[in-house]
């Protein structure tokens, strides 16, 4: 008895989570005992310091003029299915199952060439020397790497849907209590039992306070729902992401929602034209700090969302206004003009 208490109260205890999680695909141990799951966007993982923290609640503030939260959700959900993680998807639409058909497929290794040329050539050399080994490695990688790059133009292959706990609910015909019950039974299936982590579950709820759900006069009930969901997720082995149209809430309730989030993202429609690849902006307001009080210092709070070659999502820092090389205007005028408009719209 005395030895067990001693082991528990000692400051130098081995982290029981560090060992086993490194072998489970889709989970990555982070600092301070945190475990990360991937957001499905490599750049976002990097910005957030590893990915979404297991046990955290991510909230995305929707822009009524832009559907970028759908891109985030698609990648998030597809990544989960790729890693064989259970998924619960709640949506305000009548047919939430239909959304699963729009999930992107991971890029096949053939066309998933890295953006820089140098590594590409290195790999080619390796192929020439050890062709067999390389091809086998690649097959493993596409299923087991922590974060895949997704091709938004190709739908997710059928094989990834098979035999897993994929649950879809329409929030239109559910009351908040029942929705919470669905979430809690879903989470109970993969609860955090001691030190063994099986795989991270994912909950995605889209457009939570949209008018068609009929929650609009239940401000406090919605808050209580989010608070309970946060508590449930924290105690279990899962990640929840909620997107909400914050313009529908009063400003004080919107702030309450934002305070409840562990990680808070926002999206912004693109106000500029002439940037071919850029589709909008992503703001990062809060990053989950589990078990630590040291805040993560971001290089920037606003990133541009780009569609690289019209297929994969890329986030880029906006240090300078991007200059559109294709447009015929001279260098000087275009840059100065775009800088001023950008600062006006983004409120740096």
């Amino acid at each position: 008895m005395s030895t067990t208490t001693k082991a528990r109260t000692s400051s130098f205890s081995r982290n029981p989570l560090a060992g086993p999680t490194s072998q489970i695909p889709g989970l990555k141990p982070g600092p301070n005992g945190a475990v990360f799951v991937s957001s499905g966007i490599p750049d976002l993982d990097r910005i957030l310091g590893g990915g979404f923290c297991l046990g955290s609640l991510i909230m995305v503030m929707e822009d009524p003029e832009a559907p970028h939260h759908m891109l985030l959700l698609r990648n998030f959900m597809a990544q989960g299915l790729l890693h064989n993680q259970p998924l619960l998807y709640g949506s305000s639409s009548k047919d939430p199952k239909g959304f699963l058909g729009t999930l992107p497929n991971p890029m096949s290794p053939k066309d998933d060439k890295p953006r820089d040329r140098g590594t590409e050539q290195d790999k080619d050399l390796r192929i020439a020397w050890q062709y067999k080994k390389y091809s086998r490695e690649n097959q493993l990688d596409s299923n087991h790497e922590f974060c895949s790059t997704f091709d938004l133009r190709k739908p997710l292959e059928r094989q990834y849907f098979g035999g897993k706990h994929v649950d879809c609910v329409s929030t239109q015909d559910l009351t908040l209590d029942i929705l919470l019950q669905r979430c809690s039974t879903f989470l109970a299936q993969n609860s955090r039992s001691g030190s063994s982590i099986s795989c991270g579950g994912r909950i995605a709820i889209q457009s939570f306070c949209a008018p068609q759900c009929g929650y609009i006069d239940k401000d406090w009930d919605m808050l209580a729902f989010i608070k309970s969901l946060k508590g449930l997720v924290r105690a279990s082995n899962a990640v929840a992401i909620i997107t909400f149209p914050h313009s529908l809430l009063s400003s004080s309730f919107s702030k309450r929602w934002q305070h409840l989030a562990d990680t808070l993202l926002s999206e912004l429609a693109q106000l500029l034209t002439g940037y071919q690849e850029m589709v909008g902006f992503l703001g990062i307001h809060k990053v989950a700090r589990m078990n630590t009080q040291v805040p993560l210092v971001l290089e920037a709070t606003t990133f541009s969302i780009k569609l690289h070659k019209r297929r994969s999502l890329v986030l880029e820092c906006l240090n300078q206004a991007p200059i559109d090389g294709a447009s015929g205007t001279s260098y000087g005028t275009s840059s100065s003009c775009s800088t001023s408009t950008k600062q006006g719209s983004l409120d740096f």
Binding site: R8, G33, M290
Partner: peptide, 20 residues
């Protein structure tokens, strides 16, 4: 807002053992 383990880890870094 946070479970015990969160505070326990933070305070350990600050040199205080909450569990004890």
């Amino acid at each position: 807002s946070h479970p015990f383990s969160h505070y326990d880890r933070i305070l350990r870094k600050l040199g205080c053992n909450l569990a004890a």
